[in-house]
Design a binder for these strands. Structure first.
Lengths: 358, 358
DNA sequence: ATGAAAGCGCTAACAT
DNA sequence: ATGTTAGCGCTTTCAT
């Protein structure tokens, strides 16, 4: 129970040198140090089990090896996955630890988290899938924080201090929709929770584009408003929408879901309503989460380059202010690929519904 | 980009008082302060947008409002869920933020994380499902850290400085196994990844007990060694085991899986092998994760009181050293309940195999 | 009712 | 090649 960790002073005394000498070995400035002194200091260090206090160091330097990570909810498996990648990269590549916060997409919680991070001396933050309004991020950046935003794009025209990295959501949606079109579907829908985020608009645009080009009917369905921070609830919203779809005789035959979790919920709802996937309705997800591989039927989905994106986010959040490449920008990852599995099949009957809504 | 946050000095100057006075209002010692002084200080504070530095404060007080959270992998949806509950509770009830680390059940990574936490001034740590060897936890506790371990029990007889909270895993396994027995199964198996943790032994004990009492054949199957930190890989190990089971004519008809994720993988593997759940094989999971509700077939599982356990872990990790209830102990949560869904049915044919292995 | 001053453990000039 | 020293922003006696 004794919290008597030894200090740099103790080491200096023990090694019979000054604190600066100890500080110098701590910071690797050992080039012009007498080898025996170095040895002595090192010996004293582990004799005393000395651990430098990051705390005191950062009070002096203003730097703390911590990065903040805001996610809507860690209980969302996709965010958990991204968080793991980010933490691993920050730790292994940069020796930084990660401070997390669940924001539930709540503006107040996000702002409070930023304040806390700031008070803790943290100046690097990765924000996953934030609110529509990004002004608080800009404000944080203006306060001197390096902020990287995931799953959003920079507002065109405006010079942003916030860095953006995202998958090419439009391309992902095109891939997903194209897969349905290729299977012969002409009544298409994009299924999502209510509420528009940037990534969702991008996906919708990609969906609509391919649907139009194929001369297919493409509608956007939302499962209603939800406190949608993306874990258990998103699944339930998807499930409810699936059940509603099952009850609708004029339902689409091919559905693109906003993400894998929603797709999984949707398939459950469709089953609840007595329908079979893919026999009655085909479903495509987006994310490429490992859970999509073991669902039944196995979910056809679009794989996002999560590890690469995580690495890029960390790289950007770690940039030094003076860097030449220091300017925040935008990084849209093109590497999205279709993973074809068992949730897509040709539509039940060859219904010719071309002229309906076109 | 200006990192010019104002300090307590700035506020003091602006309000024309001393730093101690500002410090006093910061710490609520305003009882015998002239109201107008208080007002003036407060006004200066938000005129300057002052935020006290947790850093400087903690260097002085030795306290930092941070708790460490070690998980094998955030990508495991169950750990993500627990992490969310812990973060929410620590934040809302105690104003603490959470520092996470993925340990991959690696001793070196765990130790390194403890060192870092210590250097950061963090003295409260929650460790999820750690290694078999708990000595590093004891060592941390002896260094003055408050450590709470999840999913393990205190070593009987030994006086531990580490606090333990866990679900009643034995009871959970009894419930799961009992459900299979009630459906008429006599060839039972407990399916797990290789490697024994305390929670797994408890589950196995509960399983074996019920199997024996029912006069049923109960074997323990493991899907082989895996770098089992519990995310994508656990699913794949489960899947491989399911496929192997499908190929074995002497397979059990009822399987208890070590957790929901493993159960989900197992069902996928069984399907890969051409079997149907629950027609050919019944499967029960353990966790009660929301994903188990939307699988097909919906997974019968044992619900663990996650929110309550998370709250208890946080409560314990927050205890003050001088407290009367300060002694670390053990808390086994009894509230485990069976959630019956669709993955359990009577065995395919009434095979009488009582005398085989008993 | 308010102020002065001594650190907390470390870093980084600036001596020597 | 090593030592001295002045802080970093705050808390906390102890004075006034």
């Amino acid at each position: 129970m004794q919290d008597d960790m030894s200090t740099i002073q103790d080491v200096a005394r023990h090694a019979a040198v000054s604190v600066s000498t100890v500080s110098n070995v701590l910071n690797g400035r050992t080039d012009q140090m007498k080898p025996e002194t170095l040895e002595r200091v090192k010996a004293s260090m582990d004799a005393l089990q000395y651990r430098p206090s990051t705390l005191a160091r950062q009070l002096k330097t203003g730097q703390t090896p911590l990065v903040g990570l805001l996610v809507p909810s860690m209980a969302n498996p996709m965010y958990g996955y991204i968080a793991r990648e980010i933490e691993a990269c920050a730790q292994e590549q940069y020796g930084h630890r990660v401070l997390i916060g669940n924001t539930y997409r709540d503006a107040g919680k996000e702002a409070a988290f930023f304040d806390d991070l700031f008070a803790h001396g943290v100046r690097r933050v990765i924000v996953i899938s934030s609110l529509a309004d990004e002004s608080h991020l800009e404000r944080a950046a203006e306060r001197g924080m390096t902020v990287v935003s995931y799953d959003r794009r920079a507002t065109p025209g405006e010079q942003s201090k916030v860095d953006h990295v995202t998958a090419d959501n439009e391309a992902a949606a095109r891939l997903a929709t194209g897969c349905l079109v290729a299977a012969g579907h002409t009544r298409l829908a994009f299924a999502t929770v209510a509420g528009i985020t940037e990534s969702r608009s991008d996906k919708i645009r990609g969906f609509l584009e391919v649907a139009r080009d194929a001369g297919a009917d493409g509608q956007v369905l939302d499962g209603g408003p939800a406190n949608e921070y993306g874990d258990a609830v998103i699944v339930e919203v998807g499930r409810a929408l699936g059940a509603a779809l099952a009850a609708d005789p004029a339902r689409p035959t091919g559905v693109v879901a906003v993400n894998d979790l929603f797709a999984l919920g949707l398939m459950a709802g469709l089953r609840d309503g007595g329908l079979r996937v893919p026999d009655d309705v085909s479903v495509v997800g987006m994310d490429g989460h490992f859970l999509s591989a073991i669902s039944w039927p196995a979910l056809t989905t679009v794989q996002l380059p999560v590890t690469e994106m995580a690495a890029e986010m960390v790289r950007r959040v770690m940039r030094h202010d003076g860097d030449p490449s220091s300017a925040p920008g935008q990084c849209v990852f093109p590497g999205v690929t279709l993973v074809e599995r068992a949730s897509v099949a040709p539509p039940p009957r060859a219904v010719e519904s071309n002229g309906d809504n076109a």
